[in-house]
């Protein structure tokens, strides 16, 4: 037994790379929306049946990672485990202008890298649904001296709705045990 988790791998052909570029472009658009504070526009990139999930990460014994390292979506407490209604509430809260944890607004830069398509349905050439993995580095600076770096992995399921990709399932693995930040007031 080793401590790794299997990642599926599909054929790297031209259709794969074309699809990957399309997905990368989608992620850059998302980052641009959030970093330029067009939050309402960003919400449109999320599917109506969104699940937005960030588990907590535990220090566990070797061999128990697959089972116990991350808190679970179907039970217990995580950092985020919510639907589109709740994410929309978060945007509404910022837009009140009196959400003091984001007033004045933070400066953020969302970097997305290592994008890979893990699965394309029905296939890469005519994909209507993709499962992806990527790495993120989100820099946040607020007021004067407060600065945070959030680094981790993201596993998404995107589906095409009327030609546009939408995020239907997002699992965010922040590489921290005890959260090294007073708040998670940005989006991932």
């Amino acid at each position: 037994m080793d401590a790794t988790v299997e990642t599926p791998r599909i054929l790297r052909d031209d259709a794969y790379y074309t699809l990957r570029r399309e997905i990368e472009e989608f992620y850059y658009d998302e980052a641009e929306c959030i970093d330029t504070r067009r939050f309402t526009e960003w919400l449109d990139m999320l599917h109506e049946d969104l699940r937005y999930f960030m588990p907590m990460r535990h220090n566990v014994k070797f061999g128990q990672h697959a089972e116990r390292e991350n808190t679970r979506e179907d039970e217990g407490i995580s950092w985020f485990n919510e639907d589109k209604w709740t994410v929309t509430k978060r945007v509404e809260q910022i837009l009140t202008g009196v959400h003091y944890a984001e007033e004045p607004l933070s400066r953020t830069t969302h970097m997305v890298t290592n994008v890979q398509v893990l699965q394309a349905l029905p296939d890469a050439a005519s994909a209507q649904e993709v499962h992806t993995s990527c790495r993120f580095h989100t820099y946040l600076n607020r007021v004067e001296y407060e600065t945070y770096n959030f680094v981790g992995k993201r596993y998404d399921r995107l589906v095409r709705v009327d030609g546009d990709w939408k995020v239907r399932h997002r699992k965010i693995l922040l590489d921290q045990n005890i959260l090294q930040a007073k708040n998670l007031s940005t989006f991932f």
Binding site: W79, F80, R90, K182
Partner: peptide, 20 residues
């Protein structure tokens, strides 16, 4: 639990403002 998560702690919509 879903209510607790949206309310409480560093990711919670209420307590973020306390921490600030």
């Amino acid at each position: 639990r879903t209510y607790y998560m949206r309310y409480s702690g560093p990711a919670g919509m209420t307590e973020q403002d306390d921490m600030e």
